[in-house]
Amino acid sequence: MSDNLAQGIPVKKKTLQSRKIQRGFFIGLMLSVGIIQFLVFWVYVNFNSILMAFQLQTREGLIWTFENFSRFFHELSIADFELDLALKNTLLLFVVGTVIGLPTSLLFSYYLYKKILFSKFFRVIFFLPSIISAAVLVALFRYMLAVDGPVNAILSSISGKVVDIEWITDEAYSMGTILFYVFWTGFGSNIVLFTGAIHRIPQDVLEYARLDGVSMTRELLQIIVPLIWPTISTLLVFATAGLFTNSGPILLFTQGQHKTMTIGYFIFDQVQNNSYYYPAAIGLIFTAIGFPLVIIVKWLLGKILEDVEY
């Protein structure tokens, strides 16, 4: 490819018009597969799901209504229903998985990039949790944390007392355990993306900085972070978009028992019980909240740092 540039293909004169048509054709072609796929497999298939939010199956058949929406706000106000707790847990999952998780993954990626001893080995290992299905990982995690499992055994031998903490089935610990799990196993895919991004930074930029005697903290914060900002902000935008739909590993851990309900799992649970109209409405409500939120986050992230081209 560089050959072509070096040899220099003779510049053909083209009218602006034909250039425009050609470009339009190119854009159309590039977008066509994606857009057709989207229209067929998303719009056509899911259109009904959005309509469902405004429908209700009654004695007289299907009716159009806003009932599902008012039902949600009503249920939100019922203290015994604990939907406020679900909201709180949802936000906690976001905070731990993203607000804390992303910077940690970045730090991990940075030190992997700095070729710390065994960094290749570490990279494979850190990626392990992402390779296998969550069901398997949760099963392993659960056995580790069983009442008579090794974690309690280790704690017992340290403290000298019998420790029989129910990490998963005691509401004093359950949500904390799940948050820890989300944090502990959440690095993998972020590390892949971050190392990919860091490796794309031109080596000479970092080389110059190093010659100037820039400290590691400054190198990370003032050079690497701005240079991979598009990746960081993209991941943040993506995480914000999934804020309410991401149910976390609740199904595999507790099925929403022991005070671990989340909005995402609540929707899932409703659907499992063959009820579609109500969860469709809940989904739409949170889309209405989430969409401006994502746009704001994206705008804010753009404000913090302008995209750097390199």
Binding site: E82, D170, E171, G256, H258, M261, F266
Partner: peptide, 11 residues
């Protein structure tokens, strides 16, 4: 959202 068995039997 809470099963009776969970509510009555939790730690």
């Amino acid at each position: 959202n809470e099963y009776p068995e969970t509510a009555l039997g939790k730690k």
